[in-house]
Design a protein around this nucleic acid. Structure first.
Lengths: 116, 116
DNA sequence: TTCGTATATTCGATATATCGAATATACGAA
DNA sequence: TTCGTATATTCGATATATCGAATATACGAA
């Protein structure tokens, strides 16, 4: 695979590599929503939400259209939803591992905190 | 979805959000390989490859086993290959967009370079 | 025009990721 | 033991991402 294409793939993963942005894409799973609704649903800071939406727009994960005062967002390609679905299955088949990993991370964080 | 789980998903995407690591996972598509072979195939610096493998290990994308002098790596769960496959379809259906986006980025880089 | 609401952008501070160079570790063979 | 090969880790420098606060922009209504 050409390098440029790999870089492009990496960029898409990068775009999804933040909990808030995953939450946004999931919120848009069933169709478009105005930015304000996304902000409400996910309880985000307005500026922060806008920044994350900008990242998703830049990487073309999401498209937007203005309607009067509002800007509606939608996932550009349903294939991305499919990616998230496969990911969901991945997580389900590893909940146990995932949870114990999470616990480990938490423990590490705590002992680090204590050490300081 | 609980926050911790979203963080975990983000971490997996983060693990894949680098061209070298995508290349590594793709190299392992058809089965395990020793680190040395990965390094050769992808023409990586030894230290750099080891660092990226460490990231993939930490996020459990990949598992390793030692055999004598060598360490063999394999993708832990075939579902991840499936994720990459769906991604592949995604890219195929957007090659045109992707390429023009790439060109744009290149152009921007060049004009930035010229401006300096 | 001017105002209010919705959204985007910029800025500076901080955290995180990446890299190459140097060094450390693990293991088999002599 | 000691050496060679394969691999991992640490370090310091640099680039990139994230955040909240402040500010800018877009648009409809008055």
């Amino acid at each position: 695979m050409p390098d440029a294409l790999r870089q492009f793939k990496a960029d898409v993963f990068q775009a999804l590599a933040h909990p808030t942005r995953i939450a946004i894409v999931e919120a848009l799973r069933d169709g478009e929503l105005p930015a304000g609704t996304i902000i409400e649903k996910l309880e985000l800071e307005q500026a922060n939400a806008s920044q994350h939406l900008a990242v998703l727009r830049a990487k073309q994960i999401v498209v937007s259209r203005r309607e009067g005062n509002q800007v509606f967002y939608a996932v550009r390609d349903p294939l991305l939803i499919e990616v998230l679905d496969v990911m969901r299955r991945y997580f389900q088949s590893h909940v146990e591992d995932s949870l114990s990993l999470l616990r480990e991370i938490e423990r590490a964080d705590k002992s680090e905190g204590a050490a300081r």
